[in-house]
Design a protein around this nucleic acid. Sequence first.
DNA 1: GTCTATATGTAGATAGAC
DNA 2: GTCTATCTACATATAGAC
Lengths: 236, 236
Amino acid sequence: MPQDTADPVGGRAWQRRKRLDHILATAERVFAEAGFEGASMAELAAASGLPKANLHYYFGTKEALYTALLDSILDLWLSATDSIRPEADPAQALEAYIRTKMLWSRSRPFASKVFANEVLHGATHLRSYLAGPLRTLVQEKSRVVQGWIDAGRMQAIDPPHLFFAIWAMTQTYADFSVQIGAVLNRPELLPEDHAAGTDTILQLVLRGCGLEPQEPLPVAEAGRAAVAPPRRRRRG
Amino acid sequence: MPQDTADPVGGRAWQRRKRLDHILATAERVFAEAGFEGASMAELAAASGLPKANLHYYFGTKEALYTALLDSILDLWLSATDSIRPEADPAQALEAYIRTKMLWSRSRPFASKVFANEVLHGATHLRSYLAGPLRTLVQEKSRVVQGWIDAGRMQAIDPPHLFFAIWAMTQTYADFSVQIGAVLNRPELLPEDHAAGTDTILQLVLRGCGLEPQEPLPVAEAGRAAVAPPRRRRRG
DNA sequence: GTCTATATGTAGATAGAC
DNA sequence: GTCTATCTACATATAGAC
């Protein structure tokens, strides 16, 4: 479609950006489902409704498209730990972090899968990110957690490994959703499955860190996994 | 495949099996690092020191080789939950399960990665396994855990989601070892990293399920308070 | 900017000598 | 059983008309 010549409000740049975003959004899904090698430019073109040549026009190579996609995902990734600050309440901060991560597993499962696939296969395109910004972030947030421990505000635990555990537990609801769905006997995960997962992770992390759940929620019995047997309250 | 007539000690069949195992062992590493699509028959042949044509002679197609590899991994997978039996002590049973899974992440990281890659990309070759034997196993073991909960022997928790959490936390030390290594600033994970991970996971799961760690380390410090921070080293 | 037609490499798979 | 040489298909990437 031909572009107009008058462009008073940045219409052209805007249209270009819109197409780039459209291609990236499509690529996120396709690369998530097939991996980098498994996805072909023909498949990406078909999925985005464009001829192959257009993808090359916009991104040059398949690898450039892929790294552009990774970059757009990383922008999102680093901002999740905002709640973990020295002055925050440990239980509230960890709960907010876990809920944020679980929300992403539900809303951006393809982004999570692309990231997982890249790390799984050696993180060739992510080495500098992992050893740079991510490592720095973990060090910084680990000092915050260690500060809480030293102040007697929570049980001692190895902070970096606590983060590894939280990442693993939350991202598994995106990366391994096929497995979880098969075990729960569902074609795909339901919101209540994510809710049950969130509750489970919160219990493990908060109790595991000596942080009793704030106050048993009045509606805590709602939203359990359908496959799970009914839950009794406490022992005794 | 032509069978020989004279085979007094099974030498030929044994040699054949030995070669198959050699190819599968090599394929486990190559498929783990590159994924199914990313690995080529030429690469597999080079890695196993055989001509390409031999791989085709033994397995027919690349996909047949891959599914044979998956089968050999699944054989291993289902046996880890043996410690979870009704009459067992919940803390000991869960600890044994977690230690077994962590041991596999250390000793068979490639197997874990192949499995992870397959699930990540839709589990095309694993659907019947996930919805069949695995689902059955989880249901069975979930009943055991629910029995412990109903008997007041542990804190209430959603059993299937507890298993998802344990799988995620333990397998991340194989599947995402590159990320963990980068954050910990190591070229590859050390035994002590796995040990620290095991301790962290055990703490989260056992305390999270209301199961105090069995016996505090014999390193004195009499009453290790539940929430107190015993972490600080000797001060002076 | 867009898209058809095509160049060029490499993949999986096999034929056939040994 | 083993391995070299080769076939066919499809991958990425591009040339060049519009």
